[in-house]
């Protein structure tokens, strides 16, 4: 067992976890933040994307122990003071989700893309989404939503 502490969505948390516990399982099973999803077992689908120290990472690819001392934000922490983040708003406005399962990872990735890329055209957005799989939308409206959110920021 390993003792870990971190800040998740602004709250200090600590726990003793099995060494092999993945960050995503710590988030889902210990913190009961079930908005972060597990869609595969090979780090391909991106349903588990969260922010660790401000960067998007696949939380199935990191041990909880590796996030010891880190600041983590999950989809549940994105809306502030009851106000949706512009990317969340954009996904709703542009019908960027259907079943909703990939959506938290998509949104967390999109926030990171917009942060990193000053100018976003359709081609760049599509390339940047390489690590996130959606089976419902054909990406058409996800791309539109991210472009709109990026435009709103600029």
């Amino acid at each position: 067992m390993t003792a870990i502490s971190m800040t998740v969505n602004g709250k200090a948390v600590s726990a003793d976890v099995e060494d092999r516990t993945l960050l995503v399982h710590f988030i889902r099973d210990h913190l009961h933040l079930t908005g972060t999803h597990v869609g595969c077992d090979t780090s391909q689908c991106g349903a588990c994307v969260v922010h660790v120290d401000g960067r998007a990472i696949k939380s199935c690819t990191m041990l909880a122990a590796q996030a010891d001392g880190a600041t983590v934000m999950t989809i549940e922490g994105l809306a502030k003071d009851g106000k949706l983040h512009p990317v969340q708003e954009a996904f709703r406005e542009h019908h960027g989700l259907q079943c909703g399962f990939c959506t938290p990872g998509m949104i967390m990735t999109a926030v990171d893309i917009i942060r990193r890329k000053p100018a976003l055209d359709e081609k760049t957005i599509r390339e940047e989404l390489e690590g996130n799989i959606c089976r419902c939308t054909g990406y058409h409206n996800i791309v539109k939503a991210i472009a709109a959110a990026a435009g709103a920021k600029a």
Binding site: R28, L33, T34, G35, T36, H37, V38, T74, I75, E76, L78, A79, L84, Q88, F91, R92, E93, H95, L97, G100, F101, T103, P104, I107
Partner: peptide
């Protein structure tokens, strides 16, 4: 119309079986 179900999904508050 914008979807009624979206709010819970974009905020991570859906309830899938594994949740």
């Amino acid at each position: 119309v914008k979807r009624k179900e979206d709010f819970r999904f974009i905020t991570g508050n859906g309830h899938y079986t594994d949740d």
